[in-house]
Design a protein around this nucleic acid. Structure first.
Lengths: 221, 221
DNA sequence: TGATTGACTGAACGGCCAGCCAAGTAACCC
DNA sequence: GGGTTACTTGGCTGGCCGTTCAGTCAATCA
């Protein structure tokens, strides 16, 4: 994202990036300051120089993840497209790329486990939900206003959809016998059709939503 | 559950129970052998005597959780009741008690984070999904056979429902601005009605499902 | 040019912890 | 009552790791 203004910021970015990689490779709790220092190619002391507590590095990583996610949503929301297509973009962003999904959830699950006991981490995980909720609710309301969607409780519909998205990825992630991400995508579309699209216009809904699958992705963990 | 056959088994149970408590209190990665020993009231060495590697204690805890969960499902499944009511029991088991839900997911999330990198843990988390999937699929098929439910792809319907259940609890767990567990219960019922119950019999479906909420719980983490 | 600052190093400190083991105790069997 | 087995202790050890800090060096400034 925004290019570092000075040397100090550049170092911070280096450290944050290296740490994210290490979390992916080894898991949150296995990463040591020595690992980070080695990866960046500096001494251990320098990590502490920029981030007084080890915890601070991990919080900076999380902050970066959250801000990238939010930036993505801005893109989806401002696009000029039918609501169903906007939702479809969100699905694709989540389900469209196996490796990316695995990477994203690898860190998110690690951070969730931390969030249970670290209030500062919990605040960030909450931000993630708030982003999803805010933007998806906006899209659903748009759809309802334009008559594309039935008039339902938008907040509740988003909660259900968001729940299904998360829950499906978790199944895919931990249950090898479940399904692939394409199926997860289709199930979200299916739910959208059944729950949001009026009976009359439902039949071609599938085709329209599914047609918009192949699109470029931006968020990279 | 089954009463320990001899002293050795009793000790194992003591250790497993103490460890589960400690995981709840401190989090998976903070629990040390010394903590467990202190909680049980024995020496550190004894823990290693029964469980050679620290990891083995945690696996035993997980095994206990999985077997209790499966036992619960057996109960739900063999009951003589409409399919919708059986599903409702599963929802209630998950959403019916805040403290219990928080405890259950506290350990599950901790174990999920472990499962990413420990294949032995991953196998158990997979068992959890397999249990849910197997039993819920059986219930949905029963419902379809009796005409209570529409003829849909049972496996897919269960994946969606299971996903929603998990995802809703996660939102409730991490997003303080989301909703309470009663709402989560209602959303699952809502989904069941919209997705599984035929249009004709839907109107009283809500009432019937919701009426069966208050029932005794058995699984205690 | 001499002083000051900021980035960075490397070593050392202090604490923690899993695994190991030698020895002690109790129960049980012959 | 002697021997075997099962259980239990608690201290030791070797390694790891976050944090601290005195000191180096290059760039900047006055």
């Amino acid at each position: 994202m925004a290019r570092p203004r000075n040397k100090e910021d550049a170092r911070r970015d280096e450290i944050v990036t290296a740490t994210l990689r290490l979390i992916l490779d080894m898991g949150y709790n296995q990463v040591t300051l020595a690992d980070i220092a080695e990866r960046v190619g500096v001494s251990k002391g320098l990590i502490s120089y920029y981030f007084p507590r080890k915890e601070d590095v991990f919080l900076a990583v999380l902050e970066q993840i959250v801000s990238r996610l939010t930036a993505d949503f801005e893109g989806f929301c401002t696009a000029d497209a039918p609501a169903a297509e906007k939702l479809s973009k969100i699905f694709t962003n989540l389900f469209g790329n196996q490796k990316r999904a695995r990477r994203y959830y690898t860190v998110v699950i690690d951070y969730m486990a931390q969030a249970i006991r670290q209030p500062e981490v919990q605040e960030y995980t909450q931000h993630i939900y708030t982003s999803y909720r805010t933007y998806m609710e906006r899209i659903v309301r748009e759809g309802m206003d334009s008559g594309e969607f039935r008039a339902v409780d938008a907040r509740r519909a988003v909660s259900m959809l968001l729940g299904m998205m998360d829950g499906l990825v978790l199944q895919w992630f931990f249950d090898r016998d479940s399904f692939d991400l394409d199926a997860a995508y289709e199930m979200c579309v299916d739910f959208t059709n059944v729950y949001l699209v009026p009976d009359g216009s439902r039949s071609d809904g599938d085709a329209r939503l599914l047609a918009s699958r192949s699109m470029p992705l931006s968020t990279e963990v």
